[in-house]
């Protein structure tokens, strides 16, 4: 038997771990693109939002740009009236994400090759704005429910199985089934990505590009193909994150803000390290929940999750600028 306060702390930590997995998932999308192209993709979160929006739109048979069409032509269209099964919809959205990747490469970054990283970063901010407006115009901006059949709600089984740990006030750990599923999906996704990068021809080409653009070009790897590939992969990762987050709290604008949470994750983990993204995600997830539980809510008036991760990353960066797993930077003239 443990004191209740301690057990609540453990529960907070477990929930933090689950949130951390989702942060890690978004961060993973960043790392993929950054490693292969040096682009710090601020639009990753909006891609998650866009993916989730499109998924809901296709499943519910919404007419794209209905709002715009109605305004211009004075019609009143909104739904086709059919419902597409979740599995098929996800496949369709994946096609859309590949199309998006191609457009991003073809219309934007092809023209910005060789620019400074900070210019590329600002371009992705522009992209984020564009996609946000575009997604809202296409599927309108109401909050939508996303239900593709993932179980939700607290797991009774875990609650009952763990209730013996504490006293009468402790009813066992409350853990959402959705978050368990999300964690499993994230783990599978990471394994698949690593296997892809290690064992396939495209994966090797991708790593070659990440290492040295010029050298990769000289052995006949098509840079633009690789970049479309990584943007597509990042799009899939974003889609998964969007589904998980959307199922949890509805598909809405705030979803794109999880991307911002992924930034401190990356600063902790280092921008180029996949294990770093995962460990960083978990640290941020657990850290912010525990900080809120122990210090934020009792002493600081709460809602410290808004900034804790950034402050942690900031303090961390000052002492170890390359992150936990990043490579040490040696300056040269």
């Amino acid at each position: 038997m443990f004191p209740d306060q301690f057990l609540f702390g453990v529960e907070v930590m477990l929930n933090g771990l689950m949130a951390g997995v989702l942060y890690a998932l978004v961060a993973l999308g960043f790392v993929l693109i950054f490693k292969a192209s040096g682009i710090f993709n601020y639009a990753q979160g909006v891609m998650a939002l866009f993916g989730a929006l499109t998924l809901v739109g296709i499943m519910d048979g919404q007419v794209p740009f209905a709002h715009l069409i109605n305004s211009v032509f004075g019609t009143d269209v909104h739904h086709f009236g059919w419902h597409v099964p979740a599995f098929l919809s996800i496949l369709l959205v994946m096609v859309v994400m590949v199309g998006l990747a191609w457009c991003v490469q073809h219309f934007i970054f092809r023209h910005l090759v060789g620019q400074e990283p900070i210019i590329l970063f600002m371009a992705t901010i522009g992209l984020a704005y564009f996609m946000e407006g575009f997604g809202d115009m296409m599927w309108n901006s109401e909050i939508k429910k996303l239900d593709i059949g993932i179980p939700q709600g607290g797991s009774m089984w875990i609650e009952e199985a763990t209730s013996f740990l504490g006293g009468t006030n402790f009813y066992g750990f409350f853990i959402d089934k959705l978050e368990i599923v999300a964690s499993l999906v994230a783990i599978v996704l990471v394994i698949v990505l690593v296997a892809f990068a290690q064992y396939t021809k495209q994966g090797r080409a991708m790593r070659a590009v990440a290492d040295d653009h010029q050298a990769a070009l000289s052995v006949g790897i098509s840079l633009s193909f690789i970049w479309v590939l990584v943007w597509s992969l990042a799009g899939f990762v974003a889609l998964v994150a969007g589904i998980m987050w959307g199922a949890k709290s509805g598909v809405q604008f705030s979803l794109s803000l999880i991307a911002l949470k992924a930034l401190p994750v990356l600063m902790l983990g280092g921008f180029t390290s996949i294990p770093g993204a995962i460990v960083g995600g978990l640290i941020v997830g657990v850290g912010e929940k525990l900080f809120e539980f122990l210090i934020g809510a009792p002493f600081l008036g709460g809602a410290t999750e808004n900034w804790f991760a950034y402050m942690l990353a900031l303090v961390f960066l000052v002492f170890r600028p390359q992150g936990l797993f990043g490579e040490k930077i040696i300056e040269r003239v």
């Binding site: 620019q115 600002m122 522009g126 996609m131 946000e132």
Partner: peptide, 15 residues
């Protein structure tokens, strides 16, 4: 929404 699209596109075009 259209304003977002235009601003985003303009940022990219200018860059």
């Amino acid at each position: 929404h259209l304003e977002f699209v235009i601003v985003g596109a303009l940022i990219i075009i200018f860059l």
